[in-house]
Write a protein that binds this DNA or RNA. Sequence first.
DNA 1: TTCTCAAAAATGATATCACATAAAGCAGAA
DNA 2: TTCTGCTTTATGTGATATCATTTTTGAGAA
Lengths: 236, 236
Amino acid sequence: MFDLPEIYRHPAMTTQEYVHARLRNAIMVGAVQPESTLTIRGLAEYLELSPTPVREALRRLSSERAIELLGNRRISIPVMTAPRLEEILRLRMTLECHAARRALPFVSEVLIDRMRAIDDRMDDYIQSRDLDALTISNHEFHRVLYTANPHQTVLPVIESVWLQLGPFQRQMIRALEQFYLIDRHKEILTALRERDAAALALAIEADIEDGIGRAGREVLQAGQPESETHPAAGWM
Amino acid sequence: MFDLPEIYRHPAMTTQEYVHARLRNAIMVGAVQPESTLTIRGLAEYLELSPTPVREALRRLSSERAIELLGNRRISIPVMTAPRLEEILRLRMTLECHAARRALPFVSEVLIDRMRAIDDRMDDYIQSRDLDALTISNHEFHRVLYTANPHQTVLPVIESVWLQLGPFQRQMIRALEQFYLIDRHKEILTALRERDAAALALAIEADIEDGIGRAGREVLQAGQPESETHPAAGWM
DNA sequence: TTCTCAAAAATGATATCACATAAAGCAGAA
DNA sequence: TTCTGCTTTATGTGATATCATTTTTGAGAA
């Protein structure tokens, strides 16, 4: 019924925090598919907890727009349509370019080294076909950059966008293996070393476009038969 | 102890939704100040409810970054510092310009008329000194524009930013009365009529800068004695 | 077989309770 | 007076119980 990847539970974590973190991680890596029927009590039983902390975690996730709590006792992952994907991608580009630009003055050589280390680790995960770890490392790569700015407030928003793209992650990562794209992360690192804001923005946009963008559109085209008859009417 | 403006409770609203909406509105218009000590049980007693729906509403608000649930049984409105205000303002500009640009192709004459009507109403509220209604109408003015795009996904993010600027609203509105600024909304409407994306972005940035930006910085300078000795070290 | 509808089961929302722990109050010492 | 440490109070968390609704199921009719 469910298959939520386990996570480490810090002793100081409340139950509600644990449920939230575990569900969030599961959605982020694409382990929860839109088809799966979620219920508060079902999740509580699966996790061997009472419904209370589960409901609170679900509410938080709906505020982060990772899930939707429909009024009629249905909990769902928002359905993705072509125009919605387009909007989310554009928003992600705007947000991450903004975050990168605001972080640039705080970027140090040490930080660039950390990012390169994460990027190297990603190559290992590609070799070992560890798709979830690859997703997490990819996020980590971006997060390290954006949090260089100590006053930064945009990261939670960006993570909310990542959550909304969660259901695409696994397909995206799989598509990445096929194409074996030019490594946009290397371009990001180069732009950082040269403190080139314009190049940085271009590299980030390309990274998003080549990753989620291309793969996401292919998934949508392949998986939605009705979009073949009315390709542009997904939102009606 | 509390003074949360009352709101209309739709019969279909759950208690948790009602609490969330009422608190959210109160924070948005600046009725909840950072000094106020909030507790789950205190709020529940004030609203004559059980703690459960109150806790859920507070959790959602913390996910929207309207409040912070500190581990040590303290709930607070995040303290504003000069660099944090700067970051939030820049983020708001980026987000609202993005939203406006994405909405522009969907803007119709009818929509512009609706926006102008809202702007006219704001002038009335300035006359009648109804500051909260002025804030709400100001948000409404922007919201109508951004939701012109039917696929729009950015509005919840923008509202989260508005929430974070909530504690400044009342001072800001008061400052607006003093300066009686050039009406940036008129510039926005002109840019919309001419379908001029660049002018629209400039008008929105100016609107934010002249409104929250100027007033917010003044409030911070006036109200924070320690920032006089170390003007740029607010975040350390 | 398929449809209809009533009974049964499941579910979400909320209140209440018990428990652990943090905050507040307060008495006595310095 | 001010600080220290203990007691009391208040608070957050999570489990459980109850109630109103929704969903599901299945028997009988078409």
